[in-house]
Design a protein around this nucleic acid. Structure first.
Lengths: 129, 129
DNA sequence: GGCAAAATGAAAACGGTTGTCAAAATCGAC
DNA sequence: GTCGATTTTGACAACCGTTTTCATTTTGCC
């Protein structure tokens, strides 16, 4: 039904890192696509609502999106420099969060966990500069 | 030097939950303080820079601040309803994050971990309603 | 008091995001 | 295929939290 939404989804699927809406929009335009910024936002929102992509907030308040390869619960290891992202599982962390919540009488416990660092590639290019 | 900054800090210290800048501003004004929104933002920023308060981003992009009682690294267990917050330590999580980073060749690994839930008090008031 | 430096705050600017609304594309029945 | 209704689209304006600007006020110091 929505070729625009697919186009947005494709961009995300072909990228290993989290991308911002403006970012996706810019790439679509430079690829020659005729699409408006509003539609990109709508597509990203729909994809996020449908659980097709993961959403994160950057420190400066931007929403960034990523098409993750697994449907199950996972977290992200994100390179601070290049943004490339590895999906990681953390069963211990899940259990810890649950336990911490229970310990203080909290119910319906959820959690957000993100790990940041400098990836091997970026470490190299930085030291060799 | 800065009585306004102290006023802002006091508000945070007397609150168990994370507060937004606008929120703090509103309370100060309703308390009768003559202070501008700009100054509140500046005070919060200074306090955050100095490590006196912790900062979080809400899902809708707002920055929220809290004066934490411990200087050491910790995480938060936040009630989804009333916002009241418990500081929690998670040595296992620290180790896990470090290990995950190392495993994928990442260096300078940091992490963000927040746990959300419904606190005992809010659970009660909801079921009894 | 007098003066320089720092702090303050009203208003404007900013930037990402969302709402508006008319035009365009799509769908369904005929 | 046409016709009308519904959905999608996108240019533009509005929004909202935050930051910047800059003139004024307060503070620290002699």
């Amino acid at each position: 039904m929505s070729s625009r939404r697919d186009a947005v989804h494709d961009i995300l699927r072909s990228s290993a890192s989290f991308r911002s809406a403006q970012d996706v929009y810019a790439q679509l335009r430079s690829d020659g696509a005729k699409i408006g910024l509003t539609t990109v936002y709508r597509a990203l929102q729909a994809l996020a609502d449908g659980g097709m992509v993961d959403v994160l907030r950057t420190d400066d308040g931007e929403s960034v999106y990523r098409a993750c390869t697994t449907d199950s619960h996972h977290h992200h290891l994100v390179c601070r420099q290049c943004g490339s992202t590895v999906e990681v599982a953390g069963p211990d962390v899940e259990r810890w969060a649950e336990a911490v919540g229970a310990e203080h009488g909290f119910t319906e416990v959820t959690h957000t966990v993100e790990v940041f660092g400098t990836c091997a590639e970026c470490s190299v290019s930085r030291t060799s500069r």
